[in-house]
Amino acid sequence: MEVTNTIGRRKTSVARLFMTPGKGEVKINNRELKEYFPFEIYQTIVKQPLVLVEEDGNFDFKVNVGGGGYKGQAEAIRLAISR
């Protein structure tokens, strides 16, 4: 199984992302996406790159993110997925 490792930064937030082929599971700091980002706008920001290329649900993500606020973290994860 191939693992892709990328990094995304936004303001003071840093996201380290590990991507594998899978079913669309997103774990952020060992928590589910909907648990870590309870507001739908942040979930939408994270999934934007996948929806854009019509690959939503084809990859699993394990993300370690820190620094900044929720919006900066969501945008850092978005950049990491885009890369």
Rank of each mutant, 00 (worst) to 15 (best):
T12D: 15
V14H: 07
V14R: 11
A15M: 04
R16Q: 13
R16L: 12
R16A: 03
L17R: 00
F18T: 02
F18R: 15
M19I: 09
M19N: 00
M19E: 08
T20D: 09
P21V: 05
G22C: 07
K23S: 03
K23G: 05
G24I: 01
E25K: 12
E25Q: 13
V26L: 05
V26I: 15
V26H: 06
V26K: 02
K27G: 07
I28N: 05
I28H: 12
N29Y: 07
N30L: 01
R31H: 12
E32D: 15
K34M: 07
E35T: 10
P38Q: 10
P38T: 02
F39Y: 15
Y42H: 15
Q43N: 03
Q43A: 03
I45C: 01
K47I: 07
K47M: 14
K47Y: 06
P49G: 06
P49L: 06
P49M: 09
V51M: 12
V51H: 14
L52D: 08
L52Y: 13
L52H: 13
V53W: 11
V53M: 01
V53Y: 11
E54S: 12
D56K: 13
N58R: 15
F59K: 04
D60R: 01
D60A: 12
F61A: 01
F61P: 03
K62G: 06
N64K: 14
V65T: 08
G66L: 11
